[in-house]
Write a protein that binds this DNA or RNA. Sequence first.
DNA 1: TATGCTGTTATATATAACTATAACACTAAT
DNA 2: ATTAGTGTTATAGTTATATATAACAGCATA
Lengths: 136, 136
Amino acid sequence: MDREWNDSQPIYRQLRDRVVAMILDGVLKEGDPLPSVRNVAAEYRVNHLTVLKGYQQLVDEQLVESKRGRGMFINAGARNLLLRGERKKFLAEEWPRVYATIQRLGLKAEELLDAAATRRRSPPDAAPTKTEVQER
Amino acid sequence: MDREWNDSQPIYRQLRDRVVAMILDGVLKEGDPLPSVRNVAAEYRVNHLTVLKGYQQLVDEQLVESKRGRGMFINAGARNLLLRGERKKFLAEEWPRVYATIQRLGLKAEELLDAAATRRRSPPDAAPTKTEVQER
DNA sequence: TATGCTGTTATATATAACTATAACACTAAT
DNA sequence: ATTAGTGTTATAGTTATATATAACAGCATA
């Protein structure tokens, strides 16, 4: 119900990232409507302008199209566009920093895999719905 | 000379992180003075209050001690304190998100290692000095 | 004592992020 | 035509981040 926000990124960017994750994971497919601005705002207890700002990023990236009065919809080719773009961005901007940290802390593959495996346990009745933005 | 700032984190936190990296890497050892607030401010072309704020974080974390009129110095035990704390923080807060992204993008170990290997090439005369905060 | 380093405090200003509240515009269905 | 759902715009206020400028306080040394 009440997801938490990471203080290392503005909320609107985290929202954008969550939708991106849903597209990559196939939870949102081409032509699908995004959960509505006001629904998300209510569910996450966030201002609807903040949600809109996150969604507008997706529009600017050509991933999503807005149809006034109807909703916002995943564009054709969105997933492929993302696979290219996000890969490049991650490898160039995020991974080097993360890799350096791993080296610096002397973390081993086993510890990393253990930590990744136990990162979340979903409560039994928390089956994901298409109408809500999902936590990663 | 003129390092760049990552727009995904406030400057003062990036400064804090760079000093932490220098401690972990052994560039700054216990008892060593930190590069002075005003020097760093000048070199990075940043307000000295921003640098001070980053340094104050380190004081709050017991990693550094401030001696008015003399400078700021790495505390005894700072590196060990960091090794515990940063490991825990990284594995709990950052790595799960990063790991999920790697899975989502279908990145393979080889690609990751390649990207990490080519992440920086130091110009020949850019030997790190103790008196400057280093880029990771 | 005077100079030149340190860290620190005080004001004031600008911008980004987020919020609350209200209103507007368009679409679909009753 | 009305209603209820979409996205969108407008105003205004708060907090965090970063800036510029000035001044204060402590230490070391010439």
